[in-house]
Each structure stands twice: as C-alpha cells, then as structure tokens.
Amino acid sequence: MNTIMKVLKYQARDAVRSRWLIAYAIFFALVTDGLLRFSGDPVKAQLSLVSVVLFVVPLIAIVFGTVYLYNAREFIELLLAQPVNRRQTYGGLYLGLTLPLVLECVVGLSVPFALHGADAAAWGTLIALLTAGIVLTCVFTAIATLIAVRCEDRLRGLGTAIAVWLLLTVVYDGFVLFVLAVLSDYPLEHATLVMMMANPIDIARVGLLLRFDGAAMMGYTGAVFLKFFGGTVGIAIIVAALTFWVSAPVALGVRVFQRKDF
C-alpha cells in the first residue's frame, strides 16, 4: 500500500464523519425526494436536479474543500514529518477529500430514487446525473486543493474559492451571452465551443443535455454543442476536456506542494 492509499484511508475516514458532509447528503436526499413527490415523474425530477447539481456540487466541493484543508494544516505537517514523499501525500490529501464528497453526493441522490422504485429508464438518466456530480466534485476539489496549498492566508483562499465558483457559475454564462449578442453578425460556432471547453460546469451541462436530449433551457452554448457533436466525437471531447480540468489543477498543486514551506 503506498502513501496515497494510506493518507487517503485516514483522511477520508475523518472527512466522511464531518457533520457538514452528512448535512450535504441529507440536503440532496431531501431535494430529490421532494422533486420526486411533487413531479411524480422521475425524469422530470431529474431535469430539475440537473440545475441543482450544476449549481450546488461545485459550490460545496470548492468551499468545503478549501476550509477542510486549511483546518488540516497541522495534520499535513504531521504527515510530512513522517518518511513520506510529498507528491504521494498530495495525491492522498486530494483523494481523501474527493471520495467522501463523491460518496455523500451519490448516496443523497440515489437513495430517494431507490425508495420511490424508479424504473430502468430513470436509472439510466440518473447515472448520467451522478456522473456529472462525480466529475464536478473531482474538478472542484482539485481546484480547492490547489488554492489551499497556494494561498497561505485562509481568508484570501476562501475568497478565491468563492470567486472561482461565482465566475464559472454565474459570470461566465453572462460573458458568453454578451459576446454572442455583441458579435451576432459573425459565425461564432467554433468560438462558442472553445468558450464552453473553458468552463467545466458548461461541459457537464452539455454532457447532461446530450443524455436528456432536448431542453433548450440549458443555455446557448449547449445548443450549439448538441448540433455539432451529437455522437461519439462529442463524448470523446467532453471526456478529454474534463480530464484536463482535473489533471491541470492537480499537476499544478503537486508542483506548488513540493516546493511549499510549512
């Protein structure tokens, strides 16, 4: 068992017992259950859950992640005073944060569906929703870990975390719409695709859009993407872009962590 697994094992055990994470799972369970009861249709409930997942998962992952890691500062020092290498320790810290969040999200979303006895079709789309939740968690905890090792000052770190979330959730779509409106006389399809790749939440949104087919409510960028890549190529590009969004912050974080002074 290498250091990644060892650190992961104990850190995940600590995080999964955190009251905040338990509250997070309960929140998802209540929202899902409520939507199932009121809509009476699993697919309609899932369409509403798309917005909840795209909005809440990144927020909780990045905010909980940064706060948790700032609180773990002395723990990290204790780890690094042992015969471990920093690269693997970083991997353990990242995964030890990510897996509990993933677990709570998956449990919170799927338990109500199981209780309400969803059919096979509903499970199919639920899996797409869960995948989006898992991937977004991985992306935003990667960013959170990077912020927590990069910024010494925890207030600044937390501010950065919230700013990143606001930027990617709210500001970015506004920016895209603005660009499209101003430059509406030009062919912008490719530019739109590039802009979409630059935002992991947009990528997840389009990924879900392709799965749920339809719903123009999911934004202009998504509509363009659907037109261009309905099939395998689209999925491949989505996977590549999301892989980049996880690996880039992790790679950057490892570099920072290896040189960091505690």
Partner: peptide, 8 residues
C-alpha cells in the same frame, strides 16, 4: 500545536 483531524 497539537491540532489533529477532529473526527479521528
């Protein structure tokens, strides 16, 4: 400073 993961 003895600050450890509080749930362990």
């Amino acid at each position: 400073i003895a600050r450890f993961p509080e749930n362990l």
